[in-house]
Amino acid sequence: MNKLSWFIWHELKISLRNAGDTAVIVMFFLLIALLFPMGIGSSAALLTRIAPGVIWVAAILTAMLSLDSIFASDFEDGSLEQIVISPTPLILIVTAKFTAHWLITGLPLIFAVPIIGLIYDIPIKVFSLLLISMGIGTPILSLIGGLGAALVLGARRGGVLLALIVLPLLVPVLIFGTAAADAVFLGFSPKPPLLLLSAMLLAALAIAPSITTLAIRRALE
């Protein structure tokens, strides 16, 4: 267990050394959420109605932005090879990388949601549901996104290709994440979407790290 926490700390050190990058990610999230009213108009009723969907789409796009760097920098400077031929099982390192990515991109988004909540004046009940669904949903973005990042290792246009591959796979997360928050507007209990979201989280936790190890081994072959 301490090897896992050590490597998460190793990854966090790398990302937080130049802390500017992580701030950029949160700013990008805020900016996307603020662009929508410019396009849709500022009628309060409409904005509150679409707020959960907007916040979820912004969260997914922000995750796409920073996914590329999970493996790409290690792949170029050769440390991915050192990791593959080390006695520590690769699945441990891959899980640590995904958790580090979630801590850098997933968690700050959840702290940024209150600001957007004020601007879209989301009622408290919807707001709390949104926070819970983001809490369950954002790790899935890191897991499945990380799997996509391992698949495009060494590809020519890695960034765009990553989005093309991963977005269709994240559609269920978007649907149930927004449904959990919309439960108040549409008048049904938010429990089922939240349960389905956590089921997806468990499935992603089981599938993503093991298939990423397979992808990395085949990538380095």
Partner: peptide
């Protein structure tokens, strides 16, 4: 897209 994204075709096939 992933099939054609790599210079080495055997790499593209696997991912």
């Amino acid at each position: 897209a992933l099939n054609k994204a790599f210079d080495d075709p055997s790499r593209g096939e696997k991912s």
